[in-house]
Design a protein around this nucleic acid. Structure first.
Lengths: 211, 211
DNA sequence: CCTGTTCTGGATCGGCAACTCCAGAACAGG
DNA sequence: CCTGTTCTGGAGTTGCCGATCCAGAACAGG
């Protein structure tokens, strides 16, 4: 794992890494709850219990910090779903994943949206580099879904005409759109409907089981 | 149409209404391009070519202005899609609507997202009243879609088991999620995939035509 | 016209946000 | 231990942002 700054790594001490991690984690939390723009450096500073100079010791400025948060959230989301994502190669696996996502969101009463999607909506138009990072993160997410679907197809569970890349995009879009509607309505029903529809759509490519 | 402030309307002159409209329209444009938080009152002020006092003459503050922008964008989106939305009661109608949405987004090279959805993502967690306005706006949008689907079902084109409310939510979620992915990837392919999947899902409830 | 209201220009204020700076403490590696 | 680097505390600077204020122009309705 890298220290953060590409290439010219400034050699972090064990303690240094811990502090840096703490700052990023705290910043990620605040920015998820309230948004990037509304979260000031000073909010992060006091919540992480670090001094102003520490923040600027580890990050060139707010933009750098935000990019670190993007990386952090990407890893967090993928890590949290890894068990379920790696077993996405069956309809049951999809259902389990659906239940997981839905459960997390229900626990928040629908609030909060997607840790990556929210950042994407806020940053895509105003920070080109952040947009690329987010595109990459969402791409990895879609990739994980696609792998499962590709396995299903290779095994013969899905028809040849099923395009794993496309279906993964559709599923991720359903998730993101469902989360947004759930967030606005403070109700997980839209998310549930969207995910179930996505799975139903995948099932429409199922090959009739012989036996 | 109301002047904006609920109830105690402060009697706007013809010119006053024009100025107010101009401010809202300009603010809506800027906030769509860059986001609410990044758009300062002064940005709006200079872009709309009004003085600071005018802004505060028509709006109590930035929050009020934002809420006016939400109302403005809701009307704008519904008005722009009205012709197609009112003919959403057939598969062809859905296709036409899909083509419209996709065309608009392609014209922007995928950038920009949804005028309502972007606001929703940015404001849902930090402005409860704005969230309700946005829920209402998205609700009206979903309602328009549902009406078309309900008409299809009543006519017998869709199976009894098709739930228009649910399908409308699914379609709107697909649209929002597709727009977000399109925005991040600067590519309309995800939006196209999502919308086509939503329509395919609706078609799965189609009743076989006799003749 | 006259009169009260609405509309407009522009200066101004307080506060906060991002960022800088420097001196000293903690630390790693020899 | 010694030495150079990393890490930390906290005061300070600059600029912008939302909001206010007041005086005067434009206007509506009689």
């Amino acid at each position: 794992m890298d220290t953060g700054t590409a290439g010219g790594l400034p050699r972090l001490t064990r303690k240094g890494r811990a502090t840096r991690e703490r700052i990023v984690a705290v910043a990620a939390g605040l920015m998820f709850e309230r948004g990037v723009a509304v979260t000031s450096i000073d909010d992060v500073r006091s919540a992480a219990e670090v001094s102003s100079s520490q923040l600027y010791h580890y990050f060139d400025g707010k933009r750098e910090l935000v990019r670190a948060v993007i990386a952090h959230q990407t890893e967090a989301v993928l890590a949290a779903q890894q068990p379920q994502l790696s077993r996405l190669d069956s309809i049951e696996g999809l259902q389990t994943w659906r239940d997981l996502v839905l459960g997390v969101q229900a626990g928040r009463n629908g609030a909060g949206g997607c840790p990556i999607g929210s950042l994407a909506a806020e940053l895509a138009e105003i920070d080109p580099e952040a947009r690329l990072d987010l595109a990459d993160g969402l791409g990895r997410w879609a990739g994980a879904i696609r792998d499962g679907l590709a396995a299903m197809r290779a095994r013969g569970d899905l028809d040849e005409s099923a395009d794993p890349d496309r279906l993964a995009m559709v599923t991720l879009a359903a998730l993101q759109g469902g989360l947004l509607l759930a967030q606005v309505h403070r109700d997980t029903a839209p998310l549930q409907a969207a995910l179930d529809a996505a799975i139903a759509h995948i099932r429409s490519f199922e090959v009739a089981v012989a036996g």
